[in-house]
Design a protein around this nucleic acid. Structure first.
Lengths: 165, 165
DNA sequence: CCTTAACTTCACAAATTTGTGAACAGAGCG
DNA sequence: CGCTCTGTTCACAAATTTGTGAAGTTAAGG
């Protein structure tokens, strides 16, 4: 009877998943509080939680929730909604805009490409180092184009498998 | 006469590129010393430098070089070679094995997928949260497969454009 | 073997990041 | 209007990370 039917979710089980997956994200470079908040939203049934609910579930201060949410909305991983008729704010993880965030790593790619273009010029396109940089640049340009096409294919794949969300 | 021909590289110009590009990588999550060492290798004409050369160019201690190189070889971004007939060690950035490193982010993906599979089971595949996790999992599985194909295409594209390195 | 060159490891100081409590700000409600 | 419920901002203490000097290790060269 680990999960009595009708009782809804076992907070213990939910928490274990949240902490475990969040830990993986942290290891991959995401700051800890944003990671925990994000996964808590991902694991919530409605995909929406209030600041208070997040603070209670994760045992963190309102300030920490605020900071994490600011971070997450800057990188487009969650959106904030003002709940009409209340002073509560609700944070939501849209299935898709979360994938978009991955794509928006593209912004990072763009800056890398800029730096590399400078490098090719300043080291000389006809030098061994310049050629190496040019090839690296070509790789990123290639990836950028491919990722775009890949996301296109994902949307099709997703629709077919899950129906449009 | 910013670059007298025959003089070789202007250390000032090289350094500017190294520090600028490394800064971008740091911003994207790479630790600072590994980023600087990596870019210094990338920008070297031979694609190879000794520990002493790295320390001198970047103005860092032998210990810092050692730590950075350990990191970089763990993530497969540089390889170390013992130089026969000398106690010097040489560090090399292969054009390709650097791309492989990006692909090896796949290892990270695998761990994410494992965590998500657990989540689907423990939250219940028939719950809204479970379905959301399942879709996220499907996305990563999709990406993993696609990246593999993409690298295949890159190798072809690269060969055509640069000849085999 | 002993010396010395080259790199690694370790302990620690400095710098950075993280999360909190407390004061603050703003919007509904009485 | 003022009260109160929410969330934000800020200064700071704690924890973590970073890079260094110094001691340690290994192997080449005499």
């Amino acid at each position: 009877m680990a999960e009595p039917s009708g009782t809804g979710r076992d907070p213990e089980v939910v928490s274990r998943f949240v902490e475990h997956f969040a830990a993986q994200l942290v290891e991959a470079g995401l700051p800890r509080m944003p990671a925990r908040v994000f996964v808590a939203l991902l694991a919530s049934d409605a995909g929406v939680l209030t600041s208070a609910e997040l603070g209670e579930q994760l045992r963190i201060s309102p300030a920490a929730v605020s900071g994490a949410v600011r971070y997450l909305s800057q990188v487009r991983m969650v959106s904030r909604e003002r709940e009409p008729g209340s002073r509560r704010e609700r944070y939501r993880v849209h299935g898709d805009q979360w994938y978009e965030a991955l794509t928006n790593r593209e912004t990072v790619l763009k800056r890398w490409e800029d730096a590399l273009r400078d490098g090719v010029v300043s080291l000389g396109a006809d030098t061994p180092a310049g050629r190496r940089l040019a090839e690296t640049l070509a790789f990123f340009e290639f990836v950028e184009k491919e990722v775009e096409a890949m996301m296109e294919r994902w949307r099709a794949h997703r629709e077919e498998r899950f129906g449009r969300g």
